Computed example of a mutant assay.
Amino acid sequence: MILYLHGFRSSPKSHKATLLAGALRERGLEGEWIAPQLPASPRRAIELADYLIEQARTTRGMEPGRDLAIMGSSLGGYYATCLAERWKCRAIVLNPVVYAARDLATQVGEHTMYHSDDPFVFLPEYVDELAEMAVGRPAHPERYYLLAAKGDEVLDWREMADWFSGCQGRILEGGDHGLSDFEQWLPEVLAFALPAS
């Protein structure tokens, strides 16, 4: 199962999530992925992800260490790292936030969502929630795949490369924060994400 976690102010309608859904549908695996709309509260976002994982364990017999890959973009990459350390599963991080409390402190306030006109309010206490859930560098780098673009206009790719040193993946020349060329890397990402069975 792939659990896809979108980025800040994004949604399951993002370009990457849509491409992923299509690729899995083509492989007959549309039932093997979940892409929830995450709440603004980081604590609640993690609680939702934990609930979905636990539900898959209970109803489908999914074993996280064997059957689960968590894919996260930007802030979702930070969440994916926190969850992968807890559940001891594979994680694919796409231009991930590394220092979430620092980077998201500048985003406190009211915004709109990227894929709708819905308001998105990021409260000061959410920065504290990000700090509280922080984990160290990956304990098992072999369980991680990093896709980071040097052309990321939002985050510093060098921090990503340093934090995820020893992990599989690619550092892309150029590119952008949204990974607009994600389709090119999707087969490689899915090869890492899907169980070998």
Rank of each mutant, 00 (worst) to 15 (best):
P42S: 02
T58W: 10
C167F: 01
A23T: 07
P119D: 08
K150W: 00
Y79L: 11
R66E: 13
L19S: 08
Q107R: 15
T58C: 10
G65K: 03
P187M: 06
V135N: 03
G65I: 04
K16S: 04
L146Q: 03
R143T: 11
F8C: 05
L48R: 05
L20I: 10
Y99E: 15
L52S: 03
K150N: 09
T112Y: 11
M62G: 02
R57G: 13
L24Q: 02
H177M: 07
P195F: 01
L155K: 03
F192Q: 07
A56D: 10
D67Y: 01
G76R: 00
G166T: 05
S197I: 12
V135G: 09
R60D: 10
Y145R: 11
A84R: 00
A149H: 01
S11P: 09
E110R: 15
R102C: 11
E132N: 12
S14L: 06
I92M: 07
P124D: 06
L48I: 05
A105R: 12
A191F: 08
Q37L: 15
G76S: 02
W185I: 12
R27A: 12
A196R: 15
I70C: 01
G31I: 10
E47R: 14
L146F: 03
M1R: 06
D152F: 02
G61E: 09
G72S: 02
A23L: 07
L29F: 02
E188A: 14
